[in-house]
Amino acid sequence: MASNDSDLYAIADFCLIPMGIGEPSVAEYIAECARILQRSGLKHQMHGYGTNLEGPWSEVSKAIHDCHAAVHAKGAPRVATDIRIGTRVDRDIAPGTGNESKLKRVQDILAKDVGA
């Protein structure tokens, strides 16, 4: 899936905000971005205030770029995005499991609290 062997595997969380659309709801714009992410083939999970996205850095960046382009094409004159991206090279991360394994580790720790 990586575009080259040196492409870092990235786990990102981003929040795309259409601006200047003159309405309080951004759902139609975010749905357009969701379509882009589905077509990208990258593992992603939308949540109330953003989206977790993971894959090769270049593909994650391209998907966020494509979301911007699609939201502009839908009529938003401005788009602002907050992005957090993490990478690691000390262990292999199976594609599509980065966010899940991070959550599972915390859940396993919390499960010990219940058993104590």
Rank of each mutant, 00 (worst) to 15 (best):
G20Q: 00
N99A: 15
H68R: 07
G41W: 02
L53C: 03
V106S: 08
K43E: 15
L16V: 09
G41K: 06
K112V: 14
N99C: 15
E100T: 11
D113G: 12
L16S: 01
A116M: 14
H72R: 04
I85L: 12
H65K: 05
G22E: 03
P24V: 14
R35W: 13
A34Q: 08
W57K: 08
Q38G: 15
P56S: 14
D13F: 09
I21D: 02
L53F: 01
L37C: 08
E59K: 10
C15G: 02
P18Y: 04
Y29F: 05
D108H: 08
A34P: 02
G22D: 13
P56E: 10
Q107M: 11
L53S: 02
T97N: 13
D82G: 10
S101G: 10
A34H: 11
A76K: 03
K74L: 12
G50F: 02
C15M: 10
S58M: 07
C67P: 05
G55S: 01
G86L: 06
G115Y: 15
R35C: 11
K74E: 09
D7V: 05
L53G: 03
D113R: 14
A116P: 12
R78W: 09
W57N: 07
N52K: 01
V60P: 02
A116G: 13
C33N: 01
S40Q: 05
Q45E: 04
R105E: 07
L8T: 06
K43R: 15
R88M: 08
Q38L: 08
S40T: 05
Q38S: 11
H68W: 04
F14W: 10
S61G: 11
T51G: 01
I64A: 00
M1N: 09
D5E: 15
I109N: 08
G86Y: 07
D113E: 14
R39Y: 09
V60D: 06
I36V: 15
E100W: 15
Y29W: 00
K102L: 11
V71R: 00
R35G: 09
T87W: 03
Y9R: 09
H47K: 05
Q107L: 12
G115F: 13
D108N: 13
E32L: 07
G98D: 10
S101Q: 13
A80H: 03
T51A: 02
D113W: 15
Y49D: 06
Q107W: 10
A12P: 07
I11K: 07
E28I: 01
Y29R: 04
W57S: 11
G20K: 00
A76R: 00
P95A: 13
G41E: 01
K104M: 14
G98R: 05
V60E: 09
V89R: 14
R84H: 10
A2Y: 14
V89C: 14
S25F: 03
K43Y: 15
L16A: 00
R84A: 06
K112P: 13
A76T: 00
T51L: 01
R91D: 04
G115E: 15
V79Q: 01
I11F: 02
I36L: 01
N52A: 04
V106E: 08
D13M: 04
V26T: 06
D92R: 13
T97C: 07
K104T: 14
H44V: 01
I109K: 10
T51W: 05
K102M: 15
I93T: 08
V114G: 03
D5W: 02
C15N: 11
G48H: 01
Q107I: 05
S6K: 15
C15T: 01
